[in-house]
Amino acid sequence: MKSYIAELHSHTVLSPCAEVEMIPPLIVRAAIERGIDLLAVTDHNASANVVAVQKAAQGTDLRVLPGMELQTREEVHLLCLFDTLEQLEAWQSLVNEHLPSLENDSKYFGEQFVVDETGEFIRRETQLLLTSTDFSLEEAIAAVHALEGLAIPAHIDRKANGLLEILGFVPEGAQVEALELSRHVTAEVAPLRYPQIHGYPLVRDGDAHRLNEFLGVNEFLLESPTLAEVKLALRRENGREHRFRSG
């Protein structure tokens, strides 16, 4: 069993709200400097920069997980994590069918850049990404699970797009693997402030939109760095563990 530091939520320049510094080589460097072994790239409703970050991490010990931060019909943000690019590709096609066909206005929402592994510009994503899909939260979770991914409501304590602010509780039908806390609340304080999250495994991420926002506080004890192992660790099964190290 080996210890892995995981960051399960981070953005690239594809997310209109991320800073221009969020390009693959700088992301990889910043994550490694923070001691992170396992990094999920989770842009808003999009995933076109995942491969570039994976390529930028080649030759390092950093493992980059394909992911996405989906916005549901209720405007809840949901981390959707996968092991392989095939799963991610299937997921992205499905998401595309559930996004409204609206164009991004970069003046108001920001630029959406697809880049290569060196950070060079490839194209602008024209689809409006900062909006809701028409998946309900439960539908989205079921669809992620159908592709054998992990579904984790993001920054549940945040006013904008946080599960607790919007729905107030974790719906009974929402079979999530964990709940994510933002940088603004610790895992010690959160269950006291939000008793309705009692019993759910918690993770905490920086939701990095800038290079200095990686947290790197989730420590997993795993056989190998796969999501199947992470899932076991979140449930503390078969000797797998998860805990928080001080950020």
Binding site: Q71, R73, E74, E75, P100, T131, S132
Partner: peptide, 8 residues
């Protein structure tokens, strides 16, 4: 209170 509704 849903921003996506407002936008539409």
């Amino acid at each position: 209170d849903l921003l996506s509704c407002v936008m539409a």
